[in-house]
């Protein structure tokens, strides 16, 4: 038996980029085939296809969740009107009196709270519909869902911020409408990401199904 090693990066990707990483049989099979004469190119091909299939299956498994997140995020601009009526000033008093960086931190925390309320209102609506349709409760790992939803929302919001800085100003009317549509999509993107990630973790199993040993 040849004990040459397959590309280390490919093996790392296979072990870490598949969400169902506990199933080691596939990794073992690829290693065995590589050591019996398959090329590094063949190994890379197998790894990339395996990762693509694993993610494709996950997306398909959570299709209802993703569909709901997309629909729910459409309503986010209406929710954003809420802070206009229910502002930070009305909560903590005159924010101009708060020194920097606390004023900045307060504004960020307020924004996050408003966003999380929207996302968790969506989670409540989804869970109710899920319960009515299938008679099963959705909540499995609430803290995981909350934390990853928060992280995903913050990252998407940071991306949105970076895009909005570099986004060129519209020159004509047509471009203005085009950019408005684009901005609409960007505006909803963090809400979609946050809602989808939260629901994904809430709906996912803590431990994948184990195959019994012979």
């Amino acid at each position: 038996m040849n004990h040459r090693e397959p590309p280390a990066l490919a093996t790392w990707m296979l072990d870490h980029l598949r969400s169902r990483g506990t199933d080691e049989a596939l990794s073992g099979d690829l290693l065995e085939a590589f050591r019996t004469g398959r090329s590094a190119g063949w190994y890379w091909y197998q790894v990339i296809v395996a990762i693509a299939i694993a993610w494709g299956r996950n997306v398909w498994r959570y299709r209802v969740t993703l569909f709901f997140a997309a629909v729910w995020s459409v309503f986010s601009p209406a929710w954003l009107l809420l802070p206009v009526h229910f502002s930070l000033d009305s909560l903590v008093g005159d924010t101009s009196q708060i020194p920097w960086p606390w004023s900045f931190i307060c504004a960020i925390v307020f924004g996050m709270v408003i966003a999380m309320l929207f996302i968790w209102l969506g989670v409540a609506v989804y869970s109710t519909l899920h319960l009515l349709a299938f008679g099963k409760c959705l909540f499995r790992s609430v803290w995981k869902g909350f934390l990853w939803g928060l992280v995903a929302y913050a990252l998407a919001q940071a991306c949105k911020f970076a895009i909005s800085i570099h986004y060129p100003q519209p020159a004509s009317n047509a471009e203005h409408w085009g950019s408005l549509t684009m901005l609409g999509v960007i505006l909803r993107f963090p809400y979609f990401t946050g809602t989808a990630t939260t629901l994904w973790f809430l709906a996912s199993r803590d431990k994948p199904e184990q195959v019994r040993a012979a």
Partner: peptide, 18 residues
């Protein structure tokens, strides 16, 4: 149906799934 076999060194200590 599937079942796990023994892990072997040739497979990096990973079990076969029969």
């Amino acid at each position: 149906t599937s079942s796990l076999g023994d892990s072997t060194p040739e497979r990096g200590g990973k079990a076969k799934r029969y």
